[in-house]
Design a protein around this nucleic acid. Structure first.
Length: 458
RNA sequence: CUCCCGUUCGUCUAGCCCGGCCUAGGACACCAGGUUUUCAUCCUGGCGACAGGGGUUCGAAUCCCCUACGGGAGGCCA
């Protein structure tokens, strides 16, 4: 039994598309699941757009998702080189092989692959021209996901352009042969092309690998598959926005694959164990950012405070909440406080801004609501009296004092909450109030309460 | 225009291969309550689907055929 060898063969375009990422992920999972090898092969034949930076985007994206490769760029391997731009000699060799079998001919400067079978001319309504077709026997693809698929390839096709560059179908097959690829896991958009590939495998006299065509990811709204310009399409965006990479991985897996027992949130280790072709769906899946966000928030809640801080820091720094001067202890305690509540990191700065900045916006509507209930000023004055005197600001002690003044003034404990919250944060919602006060600490709380009493007419 | 693939709640999906246990299960979203302050928290409940039509069968979401719809491919792009 030979070892499983799968590959991810992206063309660096400067973006790391979520669909590509999932193809990479499924290949990687299959390799891990079977104990096989995962190969990264860069299809950089299109010199125009394949730049060094474009490659970097791809590699960073792969690393961010935790998809390491056994052979490929930066890693080497005995089947290299792993850049198609460096494999001309291999292509030359295989081209000669085809030529020796009389399967190549030249037309208009390009090299064409010759199908076997009887030829005839037919008008083609798509090409709007007379074209030569071949009466060919159908190719049978025994797809690991879709089952038996039959398709007839009925026209010769170009394998080397007139400028000398070999085309995708050719290099793809040659590389899969010369790299001993055993399973080709790729998007369904390649299913129709597979008949070309199988014809080439047959011409080379090589048994084709096992094909597994995975469903496509459709854009969130509107028709068609997801493309680079669609919302949520780029992996690097999630990275920038502070998504948990494990959450993104987990979500992408769920787009077209599931373990069949309603499990959704799974560690990558669990997914590796459970991943297999029979869990992959045939139908295309529509991308749903809300579901991703929900999963991501579950992951956020489990992060260690150090990891959470690391993820949140760029956003907080950019918003000016946090600087080098910010006390790390304080930052940690704020994040620990809000962690059970947060849903995403890309709006975190707005949610916690007031912890760090003395100037923050006040929500006029919230204030109006509080004033409607009346007595706001008295409530605050009653509090000031005891808060000033109090030294210890733990959640429990604050509750005790508040309970005392409440009974002294014959009020409900919670009568004080809204106005306190507003006076120190300018809003009506947020983390639980008592722990919040404890985190902010005596000095901050007192100075904000004083400032509020002075500056705001209530 | 041709060929290929697909079609279960709004969305991701379980069930389909091996027909009865399906009054079709879960999750996200949404709605309603609750959590003796707030909610970008948590809990409970609700809403909500077998694309349509024909077969086969005692019995079909499950098997077969047709139609419709969706997706993909048909490049000297990958």
């Amino acid at each position: 039994m030979s070892e499983v060898r799968v590959r991810f063969a992206p063309s660096p375009t400067g973006f790391f598309h979520i669909g590509s990422a999932r193809t990479a992920l499924f290949n990687w999972l299959y390799a891990k699941h079977t104990g096989g090898q995962f190969i990264l092969r860069v299809e950089d034949t299109d010199k125009e757009r394949n730049t060094e930076e474009a490659l970097q985007v791809l590699i960073e994206g792969m690393q961010w998702l935790g998809l390491d490769w056994d052979e490929g760029p930066g890693k080497g391997g005995q089947f290299g080189p792993y850049f198609q731009s460096q494999r001309s000699a291999v292509y030359e060799e295989y081209l000669n092989l085809l030529k020796s079998k009389n399967r190549v001919y030249e037309k208009e400067g390009a090299l064409w692959f010759r199908l076997e079978g009887e030829r005839y001319i037919e008008y083609d309504d798509f090409k709007k021209a007379e074209v030569e077709k071949v009466k060919n026997t159908p190719v049978v693809i025994d797809d690991a996901i879709r089952g038996r698929v039959e398709r007839t390839e009925e026209r010769d096709f170009v394998i080397v352009r007139s400028n000398g560059e070999p085309v995708f179908h050719f290099v793809n097959v040659v590389d899969d042969i010369s790299m001993n690829i055993t399973h080709v896991i790729r998007g369904e958009d390649h299913l129709s092309n597979t008949s070309k590939h199988v014809e080439l495998f047959k011409a080379f006299g090589v048994k084709p690998p096992i094909f597994a065509h995975i469903p496509l990811i459709l854009k969130e709204s509107g028709p068609g598959k997801m493309s680079k310009r669609d919302k949520g399409a780029l992996i690097e965006e999630y990275q920038k926005r502070g998504f948990v990479s494990d959450a993104v991985c987990n979500y992408i897996c769920l787009l077209g694959w599931n373990p069949k027992d309603d499990q959704e949130k799974m560690s990558i280790q669990t997914i590796i164990e459970r991943f297999d072709f029979d869990g992959i769906n045939k139908g295309n899946a529509r991308f749903d950012e809300q579901k991703l966000a929900a999963l991501n928030s579950e992951y956020l809640k489990e992060l260690s405070i150090e990891t959470l801080t690391q993820l949140a820091l760029p956003e907080l720094e950019e918003a000016g909440c946090v600087t080098d001067q910010t006390d790390r202890e304080y930052l940690h305690s704020v994040l620990r406080l809000v962690q059970p509540k947060i849903k995403s990191l890309d709006t975190l700065a707005d949610y916690v801004g007031y912890f760090f900045q003395e100037r923050y916006e006040e929500d006029a509507k919230a204030l109006a609501r509080i004033q409607k209930n009346g007595d706001a000023k008295n409530l605050l004055l009653e509090i000031m009296e005891v808060f000033e005197a109090q030294e210890a600001y733990t959640s429990e002690q604050l509750e005790e004092t508040l309970t005392q003044i409440a009974s002294k003034h014959q009020r409900k404990l919670f009568a004080y909450f809204p106005i306190i919250r507003f006076a120190i944060s300018g809003r009506s919602g947020g983390p639980d109030l008592l722990p919040l006060l404890a985190v902010m600490g005596r000095d901050r709380v007192l100075s904000r309460l004083r400032a509020f009493l002075e500056n705001t007419s209530i």
